[in-house]
Amino acid sequence: MKTMNVSLVGVGGQGILLTSDILAKTAALAGLDVKKSEIHGMAQRGGSVISQVRFGEKVFSPIIPDGTSDLLVSFERLETLRWRHLLAPDGKVLINDMNMTPVTVSSGQQPAVADLEARLKAEYPGALYIDAMALAATVGNTRAMNMVVAGALSTLTPFEAEVWEQAIRERVPGKLLDMNIQAFEAGRKAVL
């Protein structure tokens, strides 16, 4: 297969790194070569976060060149716009329908994007939206939001649900496992 490039973006603390970990593990379990590269900034949370996963027969560069992401998975609406340049011309976009106001806006230092909705529609006409927070609440824990996103993301990858679930089982600790699997399934169902 051709190498597939997935960029996952959002805000620190949203569980992006765990989601990308599980995607990478799934690809490895499927017998593919995989590279997962992440950049975390200098503070513990609140900043912009990006993780990139590439998988295929043989993967060289861990960095996805701009304009070549087959998939852009965004955990936050504003961040979806920030990373526009990563997306390939025919790339697909998955957007978690959630707003997190940057401190620069809430403190009044910079203006908010007034037409965010319209800009998202214009930039990503075919984007898939998911309300992961609400779906996570239905399985009993909003902290499983990232697994809901993983469930939706799974439908856009060449891997069976069983392989994804095996990766989750290998990565998530015992007492949280069932809830995470339920969240994953809720995300999967929501977009299928």
């Binding site: 805000v11 620190g12 503070a43 609140g46 504003l78 920030r82 940057p102 620069t104 203006p111 994007v113």
Partner: peptide, 10 residues
């Protein structure tokens, strides 16, 4: 698409 986007510093 980032013209005019508010920054998200740590």
């Amino acid at each position: 698409a980032d013209a005019g986007l508010p920054t998200r510093p740590p």
